[in-house]
Design a protein around this nucleic acid. Structure first.
Lengths: 363, 363
DNA sequence: GTGAAAGCGCTAACAA
DNA sequence: TTGTTAGCGCTTTCAC
């Protein structure tokens, strides 16, 4: 490990000395503000070059109050969803001269609160947050109160003054479910994250996360519209919190129960992977034994056998838009245009078929 | 967008006033250093609470010279490899009280240089870099010279004083290739990233990236050991830079040429996805028409049909270790233990078979 | 166009 | 234990 004595780096004062001008003048030339004669400017720049001067951005921030840094709080970078969104944020931020401080909340509310605190203390100019809860939002209010900009990604939050960048998945989710009911499915399971602390499904519960509530709402409506009576019975939330083995256990129990579902909807790609693994372990085939639909479209979903029917949303573009909106809110003349409305898109592939039982009947 | 007048937040001075002590005393109580009587401390804390005081970490950093921030420069967060490693870094950093500033270099050297500059200007305490090039490393020297700690992730760099956290993939890569030759494959293609600016393969070229050179070296050696004469002929670097369609085009050309390969090795998961897509488009089947091996193990690789044979490496743990090593180098008493040696692991699944031609012969 | 001086919010000597 | 006094490196009046 390099432990050079961390030599003091050159400061404006050093450059000023070297160039034989005052600190103020040197600073003006270096920071490219105020008025400096060409002669002096080039002298200062030369001196800076010679001394290997680099501005201390922290000191700069102290005076200007602008750090050119935006904080990003996501649930889980490991999830490709956030990976792509983060990439979108980074790209836009970099182009606009902003840095990104990334914090992983692990979808944990307390960690998220702490992250907000830390980032505000670090004097970020603004924050992009994918809030773990749509209801517990005091910490988001504190962002509002600090006078800094806030953009919410993927999920809304009750009573918070902020631009929200999200995709409307309702229509696509409805459509996807309708595909299932049209094939004759009457027992459709929906498996999702969202730590419920073990509580079973309830309206109040899911309203804690707007993104969960929205897609689930559409899925339920589509089933009711198809005359299915108690679609809630086959909802399984907090699947990855189940011990042991999370999703796999949930799927196994589901498929072994009396009225096993004939179709499964997975709320995101991580859940989907767990479901597919579980089905394989149970030697159940998609779509012959179980039909399957998932949210999120990644390259591998179309390469599976069968190719998977999915609801896609434009992660990268949503991240990029969040950054754009945030920066618009930060910069003085930033026009705060409403962000475009993103919508989910149903991509039909081959993971849906008529339920086995109905096929038997038909014969 | 919340545009509260960004009200001045409370400072140490305000708290001191409110608590009727000097600034220094208040600072001591707040910063939890020096000696303060219990009575005064609680008075100060109460005042701070009342005023909603939050320390300005920037000001703190200015004095102490420590920002409790580490910079991370990766090639591409979008790549799940880096996603997982970043998660490992974040987790360890957070536990140690450090923040992570993430910058995406896009595997572009100039962007990487700029990123180093920016992060040093921001006064990060240390840097974790996955260098785009193992040879162009002046900017990494500048990190050394700044006296700040540096850890290299995934790739070495010529003459740089830094801990390197990487996985030794040589043995597993050799083994994987041997699996292929043992089945009778004599024409094995290797497809990788690494922008070569269009130059064909050469030793000098690949030495620009240690991670590419290492795995490729093992693959070539295994082939030579099996008596294959010119294994270099089927190496395709910079695949994703090919226009249009990158990897897909490369694969198509490869499979349409006279002596088409009977097996393909993909250097990472992104390349792998491209290869698989291309093969499907060409209506070529794995492993009947082409055998397939890839680097990186993700859940979906085992769910494909056939399940894919892969060389895995422990991304998350490598990221975590990089953070540990870096922080050890930053902290005063930090013991700079050599990081553990990570190794790749061959996971045999079902994407390898005897080449079609030899099977024909056997009949 | 340039310089002197006062701060930004905090920590760190040094006295008292 | 507490207060006083300097800074950290920069920007920003305000004179000249």
């Amino acid at each position: 490990m390099p432990k050079q004595p961390r030599k003091r780096d050159a400061t404006v004062a050093d450059v000023a000395n070297e160039a034989r001008v005052s600190k103020a003048t040197a600073a003006r030339a270096l920071g490219d503000y105020g008025a400096v004669s060409d002669a002096v400017r080039s002298r200062v720049l030369a001196a800076a070059e010679a001394l290997g001067y680099r501005p201390n951005e922290l000191a700069r921030t102290m005076n200007t109050g602008r750090s050119h840094t935006i904080g990003v709080i996501v649930g889980d970078i490991e999830n490709p969803y956030f990976g792509l969104a983060t990439r979108g944020i980074s790209d836009v931020a970099k182009d606009a001269g902003y840095n990104v401080v990334l914090v992983n909340s692990g979808e944990n509310l307390e960690a998220e609160r702490e992250a907000v605190r830390v980032l505000l203390d670090r004097r970020v100019d603004g924050l992009i947050v994918a809030p773990a809860s749509s209801l517990d939002v005091d910490h988001l209010h504190s962002v509002n109160n600090s006078g800094r900009s806030l953009v919410l990604l993927d999920r809304r939050a009750e009573g918070i003054d902020a631009v929200v960048v999200e995709a409307d998945l309702g229509a696509a989710a409805y459509e996807a479910t309708a595909l299932l009911t049209a094939e004759g499915h009457r027992r459709i399971a929906y498996i999702s994250t969202l730590d419920t602390g073990g509580e079973p499904y309830s309206e109040a519960l899911i309203s804690r996360s707007s993104s969960v509530a929205d897609r689930l709402g559409a899925v339920l409506t589509a089933q009711r519209d198809a005359g299915i009576t108690e679609p809630e019975a086959l909802i399984r939330l907090g699947a990855n919190a189940v011990r042991p083995d999370g999703v796999k256990t949930v799927v196994r129990r589901l498929m072994e129960q009396a009225d096993a579902p004939t179709a499964i909807i997975a709320s995101d790609s991580l859940i989907a992977l767990g479901v597919l693994r579980a089905l394989r372990d149970l030697e159940l085939t998609v779509p012959d034994d179980v039909s399957f639909v998932m949210f999120d479209d990644f390259e591998w979903t179309s390469l599976m056998t069968p190719a998977l029917t999915v609801v896609s949303q434009p992660f990268y573009e949503m991240g990029a838009e969040a950054a754009r909106a945030l920066i618009a809110g930060i910069e003085p003349g930033g026009a705060v245009a409403a962000p475009p409305v993103f919508t989910g898109r149903l991509i039909r592939r081959d993971s849906i078929a008529a339920p086995r039982e109905s096929r038997l009947v038909q014969r």
